[in-house]
Design a protein around this nucleic acid. Structure first.
Lengths: 209, 209, 209, 209
DNA sequence: GATGAATGAGCGTTCATTCAT
DNA sequence: CATGAATGAACGCTCATTCAT
């Protein structure tokens, strides 16, 4: 076992410090006007040091978003393969929504990286990371949907239609969970169950019984 | 009756123009980066003229917020006194929520003035205006709640508890109505009714029948 | 006759001040590291004011270059049409070289705008100005060359060959005139005469006598 | 004979590496924006190590300039004393120009150290080095000029006049040799000969025969 | 009173320089 | 001693605010 050099450990810890500081500030009320100096100050380092770790402020956003989405992907990958596609899909959808609920601090980061212009400014390597992420999600989701269709559990529909609909449903649910900061007429957990139910129903819809 | 001088009329019209222009821009997508020049241009006046009416950009925000909240207060005051405190409260809560729904263009203004730091920068006179507003709301709401309690319609609870709960409920509902831009599982009107119901129930809760 | 408003006069004077200040600094030894603050200080104005007149530091360079090249074009246009194409071309070539000699302060500006990357950063309208300038030069030069060929004074050669060669010769001569800041083995005037002679000879070269 | 310790050898080799790396970068196109990191990388060492050898980036420039000028002085000192002052002067002038022609890579270094402000920033010891260098040149040149005057080969003129003129001539010739990168009406070697001839003639000028 | 030219603090970013390891 | 992470002054540029006209 090779011991990680102390220097490297510290360097990585700083990166974590910066990301943590940035996330705290981005999740606050003034997130639109957070400056690099504020991030550096909160991380307890100098302004220039931030740029040893990230080429730009946007890259901090990008990195936080990647961390968030990779966490989401891990959520999905944790679902065990089984002979019950419906249960799998339920678990995945529920888990993904719960993940968002538990990480509301990424709400503004997500909003920011989806803004027009963000991708245009982003460096090639970060764009590739996001594309790889998208591809992994697509593979994972499509496999499960097709498996369910082949098993006759989900109705046969064009994959693109199903994916588009589920994505819209999912994003709408996330808005709901995040848009409401203090209160909701039904409990989030119950809300999530209803969305999951809706999603499963739409996957089985039109099925000949 | 003293005729308002033409000059004064023009002055006030300009102020309205500025506020209208600012509100349009603040309700748009890039509201965070709206500049004073943009506001002046849209109002059809020079940049310097804006400062004849408002000491700072923040005061425009403050003034819009005051307009909005005074409109809300007028909503409440329009409720006729009656012998039915529950119906009054229902009307008030419903009306206040409808008011927010109908004035979503103030969404960003409200967010902005609630930011940390806004009040620190605000001039004394504006702070006093906001405090006066708060006080009027408190008087109005407390009167109605106490009247309802005295009449035995609402359960006897500490006023502070009731006010805190209702405020949270109200703010949550506003976030819900404003936060979710594309999708909601129930219609806003129905949503408002449910919230009103919930509020009334909580006012009557614990009551011995 | 409409009197120019005083304000506009002052505004234009400031622009001239900025350009003059920039040209002085760009013609000096430290021209590569001239800052906007230095330009503003020398022009006796604030940093922000520079940006009322020019969108970027590069645009100051671009504007100076345009001024320089338009002056050069005026030099050419001043040459009277005559029945002697050779004398015209001699006058033009000589005049253009003299113009460069008399405006050596633009030496670094010219170098800067010809750098790779400068055009990529330049705004569309400035690029169009330069293209228009190029086109006017081309029209003027081609007319005179073709007229000379038609008159049998210059030898018939492909226009592109002649233009390429003359441009190279001209640029080389400018380098010579500018590269040497204090001294030259022959006097600049004599040098210019020799280059002109060379140019004319190359235009007549291959001619059947 | 004391053996140079290995450690010291290595230290000196590193210094040579840094200077070589810096010279390569300073002679390139983007020499103005060369960074210390680039120099260190090309020298195959860490950034901090550069500062073990040179107190600042300017000192690297200064040291390169000193190396260059000491090389030039050695050129002069290599000229054998003889009884022919004119031949000596010819050799020296020709050699010095050839030295510049063969070391065009120092062109930007020379330009940089002659900039206003460079000397102000330079440390005392380096300034002294340059002053010593100047003094040695002056001694060498004045000796030869005076010897030639005493021998009746050069005309009697105030030393200051002769030195000023020769310096201007020399610097002009260097600009010519370095400034013109693409084109010259005569070959460099021939150019040098003409300059030498001109220099000798001016030394003999006004002489009563 | 209305104006917009002028301002300079503050933004994101770079890089020469320092210093703990 | 060599290193490179950390620093902060200074860059080009923006824009809220001021003030002479």
């Amino acid at each position: 076992m090779v011991a990680t050099p102390r220097k490297l450990q510290e360097f990585e810890r700083r990166e974590a410090d910066i990301l943590a500081a940035a996330l705290e500030l981005f999740s606050g009320d003034n997130w639109e006007s957070v400056t690099v100096v504020q991030i550096a100050d909160r991380a307890g380092i100098g302004k220039g040091t931030v740029y040893k770790h990230f080429a730009s402020k946007d890259e901090i956003y990008a990195r936080l978003a990647l961390d968030f989405f990779y966490g989401l992907l891990r959520c999905c990958h944790r679902i065990q393969d089984s002979n019950d596609p419906e249960a799998e899909m339920r678990s995945a959808f529920r888990g993904a929504l719960q993940y968002h609920r538990e990480h509301q601090e990424y709400s503004n980061v997500r909003q920011y990286v989806f803004r027009a212009g963000f991708w245009e400014r982003l460096s090639k390597s970060y764009i590739e990371s996001f594309e790889k992420l998208d591809a992994e999600f697509a593979i994972w989701a499509n496999q499960r949907i097709e498996r369910g269709m082949d098993a006759g559990v989900f109705s046969k529909q064009p994959l693109v239609t199903v994916r588009t609909g589920l994505d819209a449903l999912f994003n709408g649910a996330v808005s709901q969970l995040w848009g409401n900061r203090c209160w909701m007429e039904i409990e989030p957990d119950e809300y999530i169950e209803q969305v999951v139910e809706f999603a499963i129903n739409s996957l089985k819809a039109g099925q000949v019984e």
